[in-house]
């Protein structure tokens, strides 16, 4: 059990190291200053606009996915006894 824990820990650390090297070794192309609007700090309106205009198709597809998930989950969780 101890070896398993050690191995898992070692692999996780190794992966973290790889990720960390990638993150800190890259010069990210970001904006120089975060935009700040103190009167209306919320961007909910902008997100809403995006979802219902540009991303409306993925949004509708997502609704179908959720519906399918709902049906599937109910079917599987219901099990044998109720059939």
């Amino acid at each position: 059990m101890q070896t398993k824990k050690l191995a898992a820990f070692g692999i996780a650390v190794l992966f973290l190291a790889v990720l960390g090297l990638g993150i800190f070794g890259t010069s990210w192309n970001t904006v120089s200053e975060l935009p700040e609007n103190f009167e209306d700090p919320s961007n909910v309106e902008g997100i809403g606009m995006l979802i219902f205009t540009h991303y409306v198709v993925p949004f509708e597809v997502l609704s179908l996915v959720l519906l399918a998930t709902l049906i599937g989950a109910i079917y599987m969780a219901k099990g044998e006894e109720s059939k």
């Binding site: 191995a7 898992a8 692999i11 996780a12 190794l14 992966f15 190291a17 790889v18 090297l21």
Partner: peptide, 16 residues
């Protein structure tokens, strides 16, 4: 899962 993650990590190191 462990083997896959370890393999991917080692592969990236190798390529690097």
């Amino acid at each position: 899962a462990a083997v896959v993650v370890a393999g991917v990590s080692l592969l990236i190191i190798l390529i690097k």
